[in-house]
Amino acid sequence: MANWYLIENVRARNPLVHTITNFVVANDSANGLLAIGASPIMAAAVEEMTELGGMADAVVINIGTLDKGVVTSILAVGKAANMAGKPVVLDPVGVGATSFRQETVRLLLKEIRFAVIRGNLGELATIAGIAWQARGVDAGVGDASQAAEIALKVAREYRTIVAISGVVDTISDGKRVITIENGDELLPKITGSGCLLSCVIGAFVGVTDDYLDAVVVASASYAIASEYAVKRLERRLPASFRVAFIDELAIWDGHNQEKLAQIKEVSQ
């Protein structure tokens, strides 16, 4: 189910990942990509989006801190990447929080073909048109048992791979549903952990045509790295965990992912 050689492929190929992200997480996203062996570009000027969209091995779009100028840049780079046949990843941060975010995501889904959409359950529920009580950019409150249904619905409608991050990660290509039950509870206690995962997924889809496999391996490896990180800590505190986690990403090709990964295919 999972081809773990993709971890080594990322290091060997050093994929160029162009990321339009929010200013809260840009530093950790860049450092996390460097740690796993990818090469980040964190640019947003519309004047260079066409070049970068064609140049990058993958493009990651994160709507965490939106304005009209950012939307223009996102559309330009997404379309350029589509034209060049490069995968584009969408992280619809807080899409349910405001009408501006909802309108923006509807526009992006109409204008850009996404290889992967990754977010929390509340964000994907909003895209699926399922009622969900959310606050700000948090996952909010709803029925977690709907994760498989939501993943399938969005994957089928937009012909993409959907990754829903949470206590249990749920991934679907519209036909299969795969769950991952790895990860430490400190992971969501650091801001941008989901945003960095979207970048890591971008690096993985940038080195293979099997996007489902790339998302599963990236998500499982990322979660397992968090389990290794807590072993480094004298006390379970978020700032210490953040540093230890990035260190674990830098050495995760030495982790025993295949034995530790709790990956299951769910019957539908």
Rank of each mutant, 00 (worst) to 15 (best):
M1I: 12
N3R: 14
N3H: 13
Y5W: 07
Y5E: 15
Y5V: 14
N9K: 15
N14R: 15
N14V: 14
L16C: 09
V17W: 01
N22R: 06
F23N: 13
D28R: 01
A30V: 00
G32K: 00
L33M: 13
S39I: 06
S39K: 10
P40W: 14
M42E: 11
A44V: 04
A45K: 06
V46F: 03
E48T: 05
A56Q: 10
V59W: 01
I61L: 15
I61V: 12
G64P: 04
L66F: 00
D67V: 09
T72N: 15
I74A: 03
L75K: 14
A76M: 02
K79T: 10
A80R: 02
A84E: 09
G85K: 08
G85I: 11
D91C: 00
G96P: 07
F100Q: 04
Q102A: 03
E103I: 02
T104R: 00
V105L: 03
V105P: 00
R106W: 08
L107T: 13
L109T: 06
K110Y: 04
E111Q: 12
R113H: 11
I117F: 00
R118I: 01
G119W: 04
N120G: 03
I127H: 01
A131E: 15
A131C: 08
A134N: 06
D138K: 02
D138N: 03
A139I: 05
G142N: 09
A144T: 13
S145M: 10
A147M: 07
A148V: 03
A151V: 07
L152G: 05
A155M: 11
Y158M: 04
T160H: 03
V162W: 04
A163M: 11
V167L: 07
G174M: 06
K175P: 01
R176G: 10
V177L: 10
T179Q: 14
I180G: 13
G183E: 12
P188C: 05
K189G: 04
T191A: 08
I201Y: 02
I201N: 05
G202Y: 00
F204N: 04
D210E: 09
D210L: 07
D213P: 07
A218C: 05
A218Y: 05
S219N: 15
A223K: 12
A225N: 11
S226V: 03
S226P: 06
E227D: 11
L233A: 13
R242D: 06
A244E: 06
I246Y: 07
D247K: 10
E248F: 07
L249A: 08
A250K: 14
I251L: 12
W252E: 12
G254L: 10
H255Q: 14
H255R: 11
H255N: 15
N256D: 15
Q257P: 07
K259A: 15
Q262I: 12
